[in-house]
Design a protein around this nucleic acid. Structure first.
Lengths: 204, 204
DNA sequence: TTACAATGTGAATGTACGGTCATATGAATA
DNA sequence: TATTCATATGACCGTACATTCACATTGTAA
């Protein structure tokens, strides 16, 4: 956690520091991200940085918390909390859509998350032992959908959850990387959902 | 390319260096991998390292070449060259299988490949402009299968290729990471193919 | 206005590591 | 044995950072 001094800072300055950190972590993995660059960019002295944070990881961890919160805020709360009431594939569509909305509106945050996901060591240090949260989330939805007879019982929820997570990653990749594809976002999502739905749903 | 001195080395010593490099690059991304550790582990002096290689990247690039070759060697040659003769989903199964065989028999090489795939900058410096080779490969197969009427024409080959690549990555992950899953490899592959086949094949 | 605390600062410190170089070793040749 | 060439070596150099610290500035309360 940042030190108290950080939270005492005027909002504007705090924001500048966060912006600078985002800019640096969006372009460099944790180890290669430079405190000096963040401080310069935020217009504060290097010494001040250490008045606000224990060290580089302190800031990084804090930032990941903000990022996680932000990402969660894109999920439709009602849909998640009353998920039992909605058909699985509608939930799935909502999850995909929220991911895309998040990525479109916060393009700089996406690579930060990707880089963290790629560094399992660091990921565990920050979020604890938990499995990849997104696999866990899909697995839960899938278990419930299976119980409801919505999806093909031949499919193992853990494997399917892993595959769905893989799909989401590639989707994000496609959307964030410019000029990779001429389809628009909705078309891509539709393709993926179509694929996933046919792949998972209960066969007659 | 390594210098001539490297290729003049006795086989055994060359092997030791490669082993040491694999061990280091399997556990550290390129930038964090240490020449000193590789030299120590191989039992050579740091100075010698620079007799054999231009620099760290020289060794790394060479290693990636070996790795690529090795991976390719797992693909059934006949199936690829005469791919027109085989049904798409059989080809797909073969590709998945070869990927798993490779991963099972060379578990330390997998994270090396993953880390390179995650570093697009470096990837391009090493393999040139080409898109991710695996997406390209799947796209090609899909185009051909679509022309044959084997897969659903509503699906864009580029999107599908990206999705399949995403699937392969996540599955490799599942297989290499220990204790993540109790299914055996074949069961995982079958699940994945079942999923992909239902997702892609032409609907009646 | 002085005194004290809180905050800001960037020069200095320590360390890690890639890469170089002067020197040593050893095999082959004469 | 002396000479030469290829190879081996590890101390050394330079650089890039993360982090620290002695000092400066600012705010505040008496």
């Amino acid at each position: 956690m940042p030190k108290e001094t950080f939270f005492n800072l005027p909002e504007e300055k705090r924001q500048r520091i966060i912006e600078a950190a985002i800019a640096e972590f969006a372009t460099h993995p944790f180890q290669q991200a430079r405190v000096t660059v963040i401080a310069d960019r935020a217009g504060i002295a290097k010494g001040s940085f250490y008045q606000y944070f224990e060290d580089k990881k302190d800031l990084y961890t804090y930032l990941m918390g903000l990022l996680f919160q932000k990402k969660m805020s894109y999920l439709n709360r009602d849909l998640v909390e009353n998920r039992g009431k909605y058909p699985f594939f509608q939930l799935l569509r909502e999850v995909f859509l929220s991911g895309i909305r998040f990525a479109k509106e916060n393009p700089r945050l996406v690579p930060i998350g990707m880089m963290l996901a790629n560094d399992k060591q660091l990921y565990r240090e920050i979020f604890g032992q938990h499995e990849d949260a997104s696999i866990e989330f899909f697995r839960q939805l899938l278990e419930e959908a299976r119980a409801q007879g919505e999806i093909d019982p031949a499919i193992d929820p853990k494997v399917a959850a892993t595959m769905l997570t893989g799909l989401v990653y590639s989707l994000t990749d496609l959307i964030v990387e410019d000029g990779k594809l001429d389809l628009d976002d909705m078309a891509i999502i539709d393709q993926m959902l179509y694929f996933a739905e046919n792949g998972l749903k209960k066969k007659d």
